[in-house]
Design a protein around this nucleic acid. Structure first.
Lengths: 239, 239
DNA sequence: CGTATATTTGAACCTCCTCAATAGCTGTGG
DNA sequence: CCACAGCTATTGAGGAGGTTCAAATATACG
């Protein structure tokens, strides 16, 4: 199931057979986390980086007053804490929102890649740059979109990302997140998430039940969200 | 004045004399931008990356409805659009907030670095990862801090960053940003920026006049902001 | 000295929050 | 098989934080 990572790479540039093999060989033992468990702890210094095979995970920061903000969502095929390879210190945590299967790559293996595989190194670098690009879009959504448009934007983003790894059927995809968690993504209260969600349903933008989202009209939803998928950089070109 | 970039690198790991020379040789012609000019245009595909020598610049996104969100601030020594080297397409613009001097590095030179200088490559990668780390902190501030604390947090961050490149005298530093621009950083209205700033002044946290900030009591300001400089990764270690 | 830019102020309004209670769902043990 | 616990979703009401609009007041510049 490292295939999803390969898909994510192939979606951005051609990956040679050798590079694919090297990438696959990076990951050793498989580990499972239950929903609610920390995959990576805030403040730790991991010697490994984590590839999410399946499940939903969140990067988050805790404030002293107990508030939580989720700064990123990750699905199968995401190299969740690749950045720890160079940052060394985790300034945030990674939480399993559902049961998760992951595989881990020792940092010394990644080091070897950087010493001998320039193109693959650039591709890994690229993955972290796309994370950054998503961060910028989220900042924009938090600062300058009202909550309804922000939520619509998030739905669009997750749809494109799930589809890219083959986890969407038409415009339907599984996105098992609770409203309380969603509140920590959007930076608003749970109550407001609930009411906003109802507004989206009432206007027939989405059908969202039992952790499954069905986008009724993608074009209209994108318009509401002012969504432009460019920032996900799903274009294949020499990097 | 590439020194500030070297400082930024040296602050995170030892850089060899050879690496320093290679880094310096990357940058060719010097270019000047006046306040208000675009350094990099949203939607463009630059063949070069830009090092800011001095001045203040902002990354920003424009929404269709005319709203603007600033997603990052950059000062002398910041490799402003290094990420364009691999992302290729600019999903946001970079704006000179004051007159700016920059130098540019052709992407093919950066390509050469990645082919032959693994450690330097990792250091450049690291710079983009620190940008990402700052993005996460901004997301958290936007989502879970009230405006007063958010503003305090930004002041703390800019102080640490200016100090790291030798541009702070004690707790005083030049930060020539208008309140309207600050509003686009914090994601609030200009009116509210003004009132929040007055509150910070009234409580004697800062003296901010003519583009110069003097932090009256850093410790108290950091407490108000719940500021922890860890995310700036100002620690020197093997990367 | 007039024009443009930046800051400051006031008032009405609205988004979103907090607090608190209700209702539905799922799994577990007696 | 029911009772209960625990989690998730939903609802209502009052209140705080932040917005918008509009105008007044600096401040800078040629």
């Amino acid at each position: 199931m490292i295939d999803a990572l390969i898909s994510n790479l192939q979606a951005r540039d051609a990956i040679s057979v050798e590079e694919e093999q090297i990438t696959r060989s990076l990951f050793k033992q498989e580990v499972r986390f239950s929903a609610g468990e920390d995959v990576v702890r805030q403040g730790s210094r991991p010697g490994i980086s984590t590839l999410l095979l399946n499940g939903l995970a969140a990067r988050y920061k805790l404030l002293e007053d107990g508030k939580r903000q989720i700064t990123g969502l990750h699905i199968g095929g995401d190299f969740v804490d690749l950045h720890a390879f160079l940052l060394k210190h985790m300034d945030h945590g990674v939480l399993a929102l559902t049961d998760c299967e992951v595989m881990v790559a020792p940092h010394r293996s990644l080091q070897t890649v950087t010493e001998s595989q320039p193109h693959l190194t650039r591709m890994f670098w690229l993955l972290t740059l796309i994370d950054g690009s998503i961060h910028r879009e989220w900042i924009t959504a938090m600062g300058r979109r009202e909550v309804k448009a922000h939520m619509a934007h998030l739905i669009c983003e997750m749809f494109y990302r799930y589809r890219a790894v083959g986890l969407a059927q038409g415009t339907t995809f599984r996105f098992p997140i609770t409203q309380a968690t969603l509140a920590d993504v959007l930076g608003v209260s749970t109550v407001h998430v609930n009411k906003t969600l109802q507004a989206l349903r009432a206007d027939n933008f989405v059908i969202w039940r039992d952790g499954v989202i069905q986008i009724s009209n993608l074009e209209e939803l994108e318009q509401l969200a002012q969504f432009d998928p460019t920032y996900l950089h799903f274009n294949r070109e020499p990097r």
